[in-house]
Write a protein that binds this DNA or RNA. Sequence first.
DNA 1: CTAGATGCAAAGAATTTGCGGCCCC
DNA 2: GGGGCCGCAAATTCTTTGCATCTAG
Lengths: 141, 141
Amino acid sequence: MTSHIEQLCIEKGLKMTDQRRVVARVLSEATDHPDVEQVHIRAMQIDPNISIATVYRSLRLLEEASIIERLDFGDGRARFEEACERHHHHLIDIQTGEVIEFMNDEIEELKKKIAHDLNYRLIGHRLELYGIKRRPEPEES
Amino acid sequence: MTSHIEQLCIEKGLKMTDQRRVVARVLSEATDHPDVEQVHIRAMQIDPNISIATVYRSLRLLEEASIIERLDFGDGRARFEEACERHHHHLIDIQTGEVIEFMNDEIEELKKKIAHDLNYRLIGHRLELYGIKRRPEPEES
DNA sequence: CTAGATGCAAAGAATTTGCGGCCCC
DNA sequence: GGGGCCGCAAATTCTTTGCATCTAG
């Protein structure tokens, strides 16, 4: 009944309304990285009257509470996923749009080191890879 | 007289008009990463009649010819810089907006390796760091 | 009753596009 | 004199907001 994200909202003391619960549930159940329109469509399957404005407002609320993360894959639309303790990044298949998550400690360390060497303290960062699936028989090393 | 970017355009056989020359020159002379409005303002200082639509069209032309690169620092506006052989990334000072370019071979290698391990061929990628300047007396390691 | 949440439609912001006019080969 | 380019303004797309209404405490 209570989605994971709704649980996090309650713990953070956010006032939960029916609509916010729906958005929380949609994002909890998502295994992809839906954009606002997709969240709205899925939300309407639960509550057909929910408006896009409320979806935007709910997403902003969840983002500001650090419960979800806003992603940007460079196509002009915001996408969302549940915030994760374990920091990860995305590889986007430019042919299918499929998004593969990955994490890599070496990169995390490198980023911190680079910022440090430039005399900066790292606050945020963003890494996306764009690629195409390799054929089973590799054509290049 | 002839800016570096204009030279590249000529080599690629692009038809150059007065307006395109102005945009090319603005970008050649830029040491920052201007957005479209900034390019337009600078262009108007050379040719007060150039329109924003032409700036957009010229930037697209240059981008499609791989002469300039479109950047996205997550604030909803596109920024541009001259394309560079030497691949580099950006560290954005979130207090001042200043952008510091850096490059790092280890990261380049890691990215290729990660994509390869996921059975992908890397086509593009994007890395931005967001940070704040450290005080002279470090408060954290 | 009051504060805050929602829906709707209008407003914004960044970017693209339709179109008449102009320029150049 | 025809194709391409330009400027202008309208159109698009994504997102935010003003406002009247509704709702829960």
